[in-house]
Design a protein around this nucleic acid. Structure first.
Lengths: 329, 329
DNA sequence: TCCAGAAACTTGAACGATCCAATCCTGCCT
DNA sequence: AGGCAGGATTGGATCGTTCAAGTTTCTGGA
């Protein structure tokens, strides 16, 4: 392989000092146009690339962002993370950052990993996907002034740290309104137990949309842990007790269960899921779709804002989901 | 925040020189037990972590492995990559490496990215998922002696470079044998156009298993691009022309299409898919399951083998898939 | 023409780890 | 007691970049 090209090689080739080359790269405006051109030509001719390790040593910044990759849980929601990570990588790249993966089995280990990543790699920032009430991870990071963004609101204190989220309530409300417009009145909701921020939010969207249309939502909802079997069980219960003509679900897993429960029921019950997962696309399930690429991009925006300048806490971003229409509603 | 802990801090604390600390970290065997213990205690007490940038500058090695994250293609196969990446991150971590993500829209850009990653981050190795005949990427990497492993065989030259793969033929053969044991004779195959290594391999497994059982596979297979709609179309064709009692598919997408085509057909046609994606689990589709975590682990093994020592090209690894039994077969 | 001040560029030092070569012990043998 | 071999330890140089301070060149006004 060719000789290693360093800043000194470029300097020699352009007949300037190392520092001038460095200035061309980092503060071009203080270099005379003619000199700058000469240096840039040399950089291109030699194929020079600034060595990140050396730069990092001096500046203390790695231009690396960490993101966690989960073991695919129930499998269905896996692809959400997948798409988000792709968007993150793409946008971060454009902003001059790279994405480093890590995993952890529980919060304690995850925090230990933070320490490791910060200590050995001097990571610039973290992106956390999903947070819960009183999340120890965000607390740890905030205590140490480590820049981070969460994809998912901090439900207990909306101004605790920068975040990007998708308006779940708006999504379920939109789904509900669509069903109302189609003439449905008895629109049920299948969701998660009270207490999870995301779940409560999605249920609220459905409830408020019904109320706005003058329909009383009382008794029309059921709660359970996520899962296809659970969804099927609760949907059967709903069919017997309140006989809804349509149902909005907090996830595609629940919606899939609901679909199985209503098989053969006539007239057909409309079903709308949440997350627009591949499964939904595969079975033709109408589902609320999150703009994941956009969410990832905004996460990077917030981070670069914090990293490259402004000390003020950036404004949180709340994105609007859309409805992926298929044939179940 | 606390004072930065460097190797000098540890040395002072343990009353030894920097070099001794370095030796404890890199060649523990040459340090006297008692001294080593004292240094290790100091490391723990101070929470010291070797700065990777400084280490990298001297050694030229980053302990970073690059992996590509694709835009989720048809969505269904996304989770395969997801699970593989998770496994990769986990195993690499255990081996002291970290996984860096990159994306690219085509081969040229991907190769440009290699140059960038190698130049600026001095990446130690690449993991490529899926290769095609005469892949320009592997060629580029091999030309420059950049260590890399592919998950997927180099179909044109099996000893071209280290690889890990799952025996697709064994998977379809196993699926076929299961159907044979269940009494099926007219077992069709839904696959991809001739010319893709993976597709041809999977078809061969089905064909050979049929022949071994004395069944003539002629006319029992159909080829198409991947996709649910395509699968449905071809399955309808098969039903009309050869009326199979079971079908083995090259992917879950095709299998899903097949499932839709056979809805209402009596007696029910058995279907087996490939990849054991979340969709398969969701709809109860029996599917060939690839040991993705294991595959990722072996990729890391091969890489660390190349990176940490032996100059000889390591032996490729061919893993056996298993059958995830559900209610479609 | 001369000089102050700004702009442009150059030089030396530092970041934190590892490698190399030289020195210091320590115990052992004669 | 002296010498020696061997392992353990030390100091200095180095990786490629940026920062801080120093030097030269340019510009414009008196």
């Amino acid at each position: 392989m060719a000789e290693k090209v360093t800043i000194a090689t470029v300097a020699r080739h352009a007949r300037v000092s190392r520092q001038t080359v460095s200035n061309v790269l980092n503060s071009p405006h203080i270099v005379r146009q003619e000199t700058r051109q000469r240096v840039e030509d040399a950089i291109n001719a030699l194929g020079y690339r600034a060595n990140q390790a050396a730069r990092q040593m001096r500046t203390g910044r790695s231009r690396l962002i960490a993101a966690r990759i989960d073991p695919t849980r129930d499998g269905i929601n896996g692809s959400v993370l997948d798409r988000f990570l792709h968007g993150l990588t793409e946008t971060a790249d454009a902003a001059g950052y790279r994405v480093l993966l890590y995993t952890a089995t529980d919060d304690d280990r995850e925090i230990a990993t933070y320490g490791d990543l910060l200590g050995t790699y001097e990571l610039d920032a973290f992106v956390l996907v999903g947070t819960k009430y009183g999340d120890p991870r965000t607390e740890w990071l905030a205590d140490r002034d480590v820049p981070f963004v969460t994809f998912g609101r901090p439900w207990d204190a909306l101004d605790a740290h920068p975040w990007v989220d998708v308006d779940g309530a708006a999504g379920t409300a939109q789904a509900t309104r669509r069903l109302l417009e189609a003439g449905h009145r008895r629109i049920a909701f299948l969701g998660w137990p009270v207490g999870s921020g995301v779940g409560d939010d999605r249920r609220a969207g459905w409830r408020d949309a019904l109320r706005a249309a003058g329909v009383d939502p009382t008794g029309l909802h059921r709660e359970t842990e996520d899962g296809i079997a659970e969804g099927e069980r609760l949907m059967r219960d709903l069919l017997v007790t309140v006989a809804p003509s349509a149902v909005v679900c907090a996830s595609d897993s629940l919606a899939l269960g609901a679909l199985q429960a209503i098989r053969g029921v006539d007239p057909p019950v409309s079903v709308i899921g949440f997350d627009d997962t591949p499964v939904a696309a595969a079975v033709g399930l109408t589902s609320v779709s999150q703009p994941l690429g956009e969410a990832a991009a905004r996460c990077v925006d917030l981070l670069t804002g914090v990293l490259d300048g402004a000390h003020e806490t950036p404004t949180p971003v709340l994105l609007q989901p859309s409805l992926a229409l298929r044939h179940t509603a």
